[in-house]
Design a protein around this nucleic acid. Structure first.
Length: 865
RNA sequence: GCGGGCGUGGUGAAACUGGUAGACACAAGGGACUUAAAAUCCCUCGGCUAUGCCGUGCGGGUUCGAUUCCCGCCGCCCGCACCA
């Protein structure tokens, strides 16, 4: 028997079938055990899984299987993020319906995922493109609309000219569409928005409570929300025949520098700018110039500060009799603050650049410590650090913070335009989430536009608003809008002919609540609040860091919106978040400079030198850098091929070994071979131990005790490491136990049989979350009843975790010179006495008298001479 | 520019609250078994001018003791980037 080899190709489908038949991983909502919800980010059904999926789902499965073994009622579902543009592109290319393409991809990927042996409750599977799913999304949209969480407004939007759709700010990266990579244009469109900015403060503050999230993600969200505290301040206009505008409102975070103000700046998109430009062709040309640069170029940073003097002047708010020029400047954003600023060149680099260019006043009002107020001057670099206010009348001598407080009070008490001149205000960078997309393959926005009644929600009894099946993608743009009849509908209020909204929702809406739908995937309502509240928040969510802002911030908002509309009872969707690293691979290039896939490369190593040549031509191949697996660099490894040749367990094991899960892992052929070898070692070890028979008696020999200690230490350590998601260390501990057991087996002491039995049984249990198929097979070989998937996690005997003797290193002046074995917990004085008598210590001391002896019980002795 | 993270053998990495640096694995080298190979097993594996000395990016500091804490550099990665 042990001469044979373990055959995963035969074993793995067998166990998958058995788990299926026994419904081993189907979760009941009314199970009384403690609930535990583990979720990996659901995939887009592109058609094939990749190694990143294998790593992600292997990690989640370890967590799920471990908590099952710990007696929890584990929810571990899977679904499909199934709406989105690729399906429409495929429809155009293949002349198929997006749904046909999507569902066949789902079938293919589901088969692949099943071949991984994941402990998923497939009865809860959902696809966001199914009317069974999106009807509830439409119902919630209406609830949120009625609760005032949704708004429709006209605004400048990011328009992707390739995808012919609108993008949210979060989806524009370096001025380009996140999917198409095309330079984004600005267009004015009427859009539906979720009012995420209403939650800005809460979303920001609640980040502090997400202690099981990576600090990095929390920081990114903090920056994205971008809170800044400042003052809204009115500048009174010096009357002019150019405009009737009586004042300009600016936003500033540095009101303490008001005495250093030398101009007021307007955004090219400011209402006053637009008004003035109508009568001023030169200004209109300047604005047009700003726009031409504004969006297309990524070199905004380098763009020179440019201004246009409007000729208008405003009164200096604190210096009697002085006035300031009003400039339009290219660097002032319309959609932050009020679209207008006051410039204090001495203490703001952008203002300084403008001031130097147009010869405006540069007056320092913050004095750095140690500088002389008479001689301190600002050259080409603005001073933005701490200091004492000077040159500032009644603010002189104050700190920046104190000056901010006093000037805010000062302006609050004065009036301009019958309003307080100044008002403390908090601003956020976060803007409302525009969700309208001019696409067919998305969730229809359930509203009807009636010329009489206006824009009204579709009555809930008429939901879902289903996408029409008979669509054509012959024309670019929105196929839903092009459909001959779909949008024509009677107004549900007055019955007059009306028009359906033809925009669909951003697919990030779909993924903002799927985790809640999993808790009751067949419910007639979006959620069953009692059930959802029992499962949520997700205990452990695992996915890629690329979703740190978009998906995770939207989901946090949506959960709050669902709470406000009574669908769930909590604010936060994900209690624990883990972001795993990417899967990388070496790259290879042929002599012609073309990328060569790893399957065509033969690697050779002699000593430190590694060379490569082509598998069929034998031509030399250049070994390139290690990169994220990508089709363009041809350095992808197909999970199907790995599972087909080595088995799922090997792939899973390798994905979990070696590299810490949050870091990138490099896929190597050698690493896979190693994982596969280990699989065979375990299989042999189990058979060998079984061949030794079993005796019930517990031996107290030192050898048996050593085996039992190794076993219990591993069981304890692996549990801790899995709980801390340190899979690479859990793997190392399993190796250690395996080595210890193999050694004991080879030593062949007769009275350790039962200890060995316990050892391998425990080993199999420790392995089972990572290599579940091998574990089931070995479990059977061991003659255990039932499935290891149903077996409880091994009990750890705390008495076996502690040694009664410890080896303490002895240092002399911090350098290790000797060691001593003493009883655990020995008093420092006694240790000291023993140590000084040791021969190597005496020798190292060379007759010197110790100045001081530090004894840290059970750890170390340090003798200072 | 701002924010965050990371620098440890040939490689991926361990090292708990400051306490024996390199666990575990990969690669490499040597050996056993074999007609031979594969598989398997055993040994070596940070460096050096080796009874000892040096060594966790570099330079300082705190400490009996620093990969770990503090200060200053250097390098790499990620995120944000005219946000007033």
């Amino acid at each position: 028997m042990s001469g044979e080899r373990y055959n995963p190709r035969e074993s793995e489908p067998k166990w998958q079938k058995i788990w299926d038949e026994r419904q081993s991983f189907v979760t009941a909502n009314d199970d009384p055990r403690e609930p535990y919800y583990v979720l990996e980010m659901f995939p887009y059904p592109s058609g094939r899984i990749h190694m990143g999926h294998v790593r992600n789902y292997a990690m989640g499965d370890v967590v799920a299987r471990y908590h099952r073994a710990k007696g929890k009622n584990v929810l571990h579902p899977m679904g499909w993020d199934a709406f989105g543009l690729p399906a429409e592109n495929a429809a155009i290319e293949r002349k198929t319906h997006p749904g046909t393409w999507t569902y066949s991809n789902i079938e293919a990927m589901k088969k692949q995922l099943k071949s991984m042996g994941l402990s998923i409750d497939w009865t809860r599977e959902i696809a966001t493109c199914s009317p069974d799913y999106y009807r509830h999304q439409q119902a919630m949209f209406i609830d949120m609309l009625e609760a005032g969480l949704v708004t429709r407004k006209s605004s400048k939007v990011n328009w992707d000219p390739v995808d012919m759709t609108v993008l949210a700010n979060e989806q524009v990266i370096d001025g380009k569409g996140w999917r198409s990579g095309a330079p984004v244009e600005q267009r004015e469109l009427t859009q539906w928005f979720f009012k995420i900015s209403d939650f800005a403060e809460d979303l920001l503050e609640a980040l502090d409570g997400l202690t099981e999230w990576p600090e990095k993600v929390r920081t990114m969200q903090r920056n994205w929300i971008g809170r800044s505290e400042g003052l809204r301040l009115l500048f009174e206009m010096v009357p002019s025949d150019k405009t009737d505008t009586a004042s300009i409102e600016v936003f500033t975070t540095r009101p303490d520098t008001i005495f250093g103000a030398s101009f007021v700046g307007l955004s090219p998109d400011h209402r006053l700018t637009t008004e003035l430009a109508e009568a001023n062709p030169a200004l209109a040309a300047f604005v047009a110039e700003c726009h031409s640069h504004g969006t297309a170029t990524e070199t905004l940073e380098k763009a020179e500060k440019q201004g246009f003097d409007t000729g208008l002047r405003v009164k200096h708010p604190v210096i009697e009799g002085e006035t300031l020029p009003v400039y339009v400047a290219n660097f002032i954003l319309m959609d932050y603050g009020t679209g207008a600023i006051f410039g204090c060149p001495a203490h703001d680099q952008r203002d300084l650049d403008l001031a130097r260019k147009y010869g405006l006043l540069v007056k320092p009002v913050v004095l750095p410590q140690g500088e002389d107020p008479a001689s301190f001057a600002v050259g080409t670099e603005a001073y933005t650090d701490a200091g004492t206010i000077f040159n500032s009348g009644f603010l002189d001598g104050l700190s920046i913070d104190e000056a901010k407080r006093q000037i805010a009070d000062y302006f609050a008490a004065r009036a301009v335009d019958n309003r307080p001149q100044g008002k403390v205000e908090v601003n956020y960078r976060l803007r409302d989430w525009g969700i309208s997309r001019q696409r067919y393959w998305g969730c229809p926005i359930p509203v009807i536009h009636c010329e009489v009644c206006g824009t009204i929600p579709v009555p809930k009894k008429d939901l879902p608003v289903v996408l029409p099946e008979d669509v054509s993608f012959d024309k670019p743009g929105n196929a839903l809008d092009h459909h001959p009849t779909w949008k024509h509908v009677a107004c549900p209020q007055c019955g007059a002919p009306a028009r359906r909204e033809t925009d669909t929702m951003d697919t990030f809406v779909d993924s903002s609540w799927y985790f809640a739908r999993f808790t009751a995937p067949q419910a007639e309502t979006p959620t069953i609040p009692g059930v959802a509240n029992r499962w949520l928040p997700v205990d452990q969510y695992i996915g890629g860091v690329e979703h740190a802002i978009l998906h995770l911030l939207y989901s946090r908002f949506f959960t709050r919106a669902m709470k406000a509309t009574g669908h769930v009872g909590m604010d936060e969707p994900f209690k624990g978040l883990f972001t795993q690293g990417m899967v990388t691979h070496e790259t290879y290039k042929g002599e012609d400079g073309a990328w060569v896939p790893p399957t065509d490369v033969v690697l050779e190593a002699t000593g430190d030198a590694r060379t490569a040549r082509h598998i069929s031509t034998g031509a030399p191949i250049q070994i390139g850098s290690v990169e994220k697996m990508s089709k363009s660099k041809k350095n992808v490894v197909d999970p199907d091929e790995i599972v087909g040749s080595y088995g799922a367990d090997t792939a899973r094991w390798f994905m979990l070994s070696d590299s810490p899960p949050e870091r990138d892992v490099q896929w190597t052929e050698a690493g896979v071979e190693g994982a596969s070898r280990f699989q065979q070692r375990v299989w042999r070890l189990v058979h060998d131990v079984v061949a030794q028979g079993d005796n019930e008696g517990v031996s107290t020999s030192a050898e048996a005790l050593a085996v039992r200690r190794a076993t219990h230490r591993a069981a304890d350590g692996v549990a801790r490491d899995i709980e801390g998601l340190r899979f690479n260390r859990a793997v190392a501990q399993i190796y250690e136990l395996t080595n210890a057991l193999a050694k004991a087996r080879d030593a062949g002491a007769a009275d350790i049989v039962s200890a060995m039995r316990e050892g391998v049984r425990t080993l199999i249990q420790l392995i089972s979350p990572m290599m579940p198929h091998l574990a089931e097979t070995c479990w059977q070989v061991l003659g255990e009843s039932g499935l290891v998937a149903d077996a409880p996690w091994p009990e750890v005997d705390p008495a076996l975790l502690v040694d009664d003797e410890v080896t303490m290193p002895i240092q002399i002046n911090g350098k290790r010179r000797a060691e001593i074995a003493v009883a655990k917990g020995m008093a420092p004085a006694e240790v000291e006495g023993r140590v000084l008598g040791l021969e190597p210590v005496q020798k190292a001391l060379e007759g010197r008298t110790p100045k001081k002896i530090v004894v840290v019980p059970d750890r170390i002795v340090n003798i200072v001479v």
